[in-house]
Simulated assay, not measured.
Amino acid sequence: MIPSAFDYTAPSTVDEAVRALVDAGEDAKVLAGGQSLLPVLRMRLAAPTTLVDLGKIAELRGVTEDGDALVIGAMTTHYEVQRDALVREHAELLAKATDTVADPQVRHRGTFGGSIAHADPAGDLPAPALALDAEMVIASPGGRRTVPAAEFFQDLFTTALAPDEILVAVRVPKYTGWHAHYEKFNRVAQAWSTVAVAVAVRTDGSSIAEARVALTNMGSTPVRATAVEQALVGGDASAEAVRAAAQHAAEGTNPPADGNADVEYRQELARVLTGRAVSAAVG
């Protein structure tokens, strides 16, 4: 199919991009890497009047340190996140989750911020962002604001972003020395997650001192598995203890039923994959 006609603008600053969104009204769309938006346009599932392309805004690219946090520009590609030394040292979970995104072609074009803002419940980056208590830096006509991941993801493909706002960057606290793993189950290579589990743990000798666990595609938004975290903290890292904690993974979830899996299957997958992910993280 051919997309509907639209106006196109490629601003060079964030302020110009916000002004373009304000001028275009609610029917405008932001173009980042285009890996989610372009197929939707081709199928005419969306018909924006204006596309605001962020590709020329240098401020939105790169990974930097800011005290005890990393700041990842929204237009930083998956490929760049994968290979960034700061990410691998201080936020290993993000690097491991990004390794599973689609294929090399998509990772070279798709953007970290685009995936977060798209808020697909089967996407591989929202759950790690939630697990790591990331914060979203948002530019709006009134200035900039910061929204924690727990409040940013609101519903299916729905975030705290208003129509005239742009995700500028993601702030991720440093988890230096933590162990991490992203365990993903999909039916075919490069497909969306049927279920996936994001885990980051800090060990103290043979015990687990802190744990952060979040689930992909177990609800309309990423889900924090707090019952698993509570069961893990203070316990030893033995296989038996990890398996027992993982049995809490499906608590409080509302997974979808579709052609890939029904509710009960996804709940069991969550328990099994959580055990695998924690075990892999603690070695």
Rank of each mutant, 00 (worst) to 15 (best):
M43N: 03
M43K: 07
M43V: 02
R44W: 06
R44E: 05
R44D: 03
A46C: 05
A46Q: 13
A47E: 15
A47D: 14
T49Y: 02
T49S: 15
L51T: 04
L51C: 05
D53K: 11
D53V: 08
L54C: 02
L54M: 09
L54D: 01
G55C: 07
G55I: 00
G55D: 10
G55R: 15
K56S: 15
K56G: 09
I57L: 07
A58W: 02
A58M: 08
A58N: 14
L60G: 04
L60F: 05
L60K: 04
L60S: 07
R61Y: 09
G62K: 06
G62M: 04
G62T: 05
G62D: 11
V63S: 08
E65N: 04
E65C: 02
E65L: 14
D66G: 02
D66S: 14
G67S: 06
G67Y: 05
D68L: 01
A69F: 00
L70N: 08
L70D: 08
V71S: 12
V71I: 15
V71F: 05
V71C: 10
V71A: 10
I72P: 12
I72H: 11
G73H: 04
G73L: 03
G73P: 09
A74P: 10
A74S: 15
M75R: 08
M75E: 07
M75F: 12
T76H: 03
T76R: 05
T77M: 04
H78G: 07
H78T: 01
E80S: 12
E80L: 06
V81Q: 07
R83F: 11
R83S: 14
R83H: 15
R83Y: 13
D84A: 10
D84L: 05
A85K: 13
A85Y: 00
L86D: 06
V87M: 11
V87R: 07
V87S: 08
R88V: 11
R88A: 09
R88L: 10
E89G: 05
E89N: 11
H90A: 14
A91V: 08
E92P: 00
E92D: 11
E92I: 00
L94P: 03
A95R: 05
K96H: 11
K96E: 13
A97I: 03
A97W: 03
D99E: 15
D99S: 08
V101C: 10
V101S: 06
V101L: 14
A102G: 04
A102M: 02
D103T: 08
D103L: 07
D103Q: 12
P104M: 11
P104L: 11
Q105V: 14
Q105S: 14
